[in-house]
């Protein structure tokens, strides 16, 4: 479950003020809003990268507002992937597991499994530079879900990819949703994306979130 209660963040020119919404456990929610409306800021706050000025964030029933990002158990896929450029695709995907000092054999099988799922098996030994937009997004997704986080945050995951890849990633996200039983918050400005993926669609407007549709 993701619960945001009266969250306020002041950051430069724009401010989020008293944002409240809930995404129940295991639900794929799409949050829609205009570019520049502060959607990314909201995701970063949930991931723990921004300190709110007021309000609370609850993940899986725990108040994590004061927790550092590392222990929030949140997978975050930023809009432009932000891969670790000095590492190979393999090392990117295995990163969270290695930080957790997971056994080598387990890391190996998990990376292989994800590579299979995401269609990255041929790229594992490549350095994570010069990948196409779609490839980079898939690596970032693999990296974010490798440690089986309870919550997955996706920031415009389909923005930087071409039509063909888009369909493929939509399929992937559907697969991830059913296979991993994660609570997903996916932000976008595209209605089509929301229609394709959202079990619950939230609209984000002028710093307020309204539940537009629930399916």
């Amino acid at each position: 479950m993701i619960a945001v209660e009266g969250l306020s963040i002041r950051q430069g020119e724009f401010a989020l003020d008293g944002v409240t919404f809930t995404v129940p456990t295991g639900v794929y929610a799409v949050l829609m809003g205009q570019t520049g409306s502060g959607k990314t800021t909201l995701l970063e706050a949930i991931a723990g990268l921004r300190r709110p000025t007021a309000g609370r964030i609850l993940l899986a029933g725990h108040d994590v507002t004061q927790f550092p990002p590392a222990i929030r158990n949140v997978g975050y896929v930023p809009q432009d992937a932000v891969l670790f450029k000095t590492m190979t695709v393999w090392e990117n995907i295995a990163f969270a597991l290695n930080v957790r000092k997971t056994q080598h054999s387990e890391v190996e099988s998990r990376v292989r499994e994800l590579a299979e799922l995401l269609g990255l098996s041929g790229l594992l030994e490549r350095r994570a530079v010069g990948l196409s937009g779609g490839e980079a997004q898939r690596v970032a997704l693999g990296r974010a879900i490798a440690f089986r986080p309870a919550v997955l945050l996706l920031d415009e995951p389909l923005n930087a990819v071409d039509e063909d890849t888009r369909d493929r990633i939509v399929e992937l996200l559907r697969g991830v949703r059913t296979e991993h039983k994660m609570t997903v918050l996916h932000i976008t400005h595209s209605n089509a994306e929301a229609e394709l993926l959202g079990e619950r669609i939230l609209r984000f407007d002028a710093g307020r979130v309204t539940v537009r549709e629930e399916r």
Binding site: P69, I71, R72, P78, A96, F147
Partner: peptide, 14 residues
């Protein structure tokens, strides 16, 4: 990009 560090922190790094 300071965000690479942010991402690493969401992945479990101090």
């Amino acid at each position: 990009d300071p965000r690479t560090e942010d991402i690493a922190r969401t992945l479990g790094c101090s």
